[in-house]
Simulated assay, not measured.
Amino acid sequence: MKRKIIIEIISSLLILLFLYASVSKWLAFRTFIGDMNNQPFPNWMTPYLVWSIPFIEVLIAIGLIFEKTRVPALYASLVLMMAFTIYTVAVLCHAFLYIPCSCGGVIKKLTWPQHLVFNLFFVGISILGIWLKKREPVAAVRAVEA
């Protein structure tokens, strides 16, 4: 029972993160586009990134809601947060000349070291969620599915 509560808390935190991030990007869409154009990626990628990133964040959040899609969504959370974390590490290692933050809302106000801690927290809880789901008794999983 305790495991289920922890999994629910982890899923809820990730849902809040991804919904908040995607909605704040859409609410300040022009700013988000400008920030993405200033990233160290080629500008031809901007149209794909500005539509796909918020969309993927929403898909992951929806996947985390449902028991049948929770494990794939936890893996997707891990992959996305790892990508953001690798980018943050590259920024902190001065790999880029100009480093705008294309995050949305209050997350944009974080310093790069704070971004790293923030991202590592969500990487960690994604890993914990995956681990807890994999250790769930099979009978409990079947009971939920029925």
Results as ranks from 00 to 15, higher is better:
69 T>M: 07
11 S>W: 06
145 E>I: 05
108 K>I: 02
107 I>W: 03
22 S>W: 01
54 P>E: 13
35 D>F: 02
133 K>C: 14
116 L>E: 00
24 S>V: 11
118 F>Y: 09
102 S>A: 14
98 Y>D: 13
109 K>W: 08
92 L>S: 09
75 Y>L: 11
76 A>P: 03
43 N>R: 12
20 Y>R: 01
114 Q>N: 04
117 V>W: 05
87 Y>F: 14
86 I>C: 13
137 P>S: 11
28 A>S: 12
25 K>M: 07
144 V>M: 11
80 L>D: 03
134 K>W: 08
65 I>P: 07
88 T>G: 12
97 L>A: 13
67 E>C: 07
99 I>V: 13
75 Y>C: 11
10 I>Q: 05
55 F>Y: 11
14 L>Y: 01
113 P>M: 09
110 L>A: 03
79 V>Y: 13
106 V>G: 04
17 L>T: 02
90 A>D: 12
133 K>S: 14
32 F>E: 03
121 F>L: 08
90 A>N: 13
4 K>N: 03
43 N>V: 13
85 T>V: 05
144 V>A: 15
4 K>H: 09
145 E>R: 14
4 K>G: 00
59 L>Y: 04
22 S>P: 02
14 L>K: 00
57 E>Y: 01
55 F>P: 00
123 V>F: 08
56 I>A: 12
19 L>G: 08
14 L>P: 00
21 A>P: 02
12 S>A: 15
88 T>Q: 14
98 Y>F: 14
98 Y>C: 08
132 L>T: 12
96 F>T: 13
134 K>D: 11
51 W>E: 05
57 E>C: 07
4 K>V: 06
4 K>L: 12
100 P>S: 13
60 I>E: 10
138 V>W: 14
145 E>P: 01
61 A>V: 08
111 T>R: 09
25 K>Q: 06
78 L>M: 04
58 V>R: 07
111 T>A: 11
64 L>W: 03
117 V>Y: 07
49 L>G: 12
125 I>H: 04
78 L>N: 06
135 R>D: 14
45 M>K: 10
54 P>C: 03
103 C>F: 08
85 T>I: 10
46 T>K: 05
27 L>A: 14
137 P>F: 11
35 D>Q: 14
31 T>D: 15
1 M>G: 14
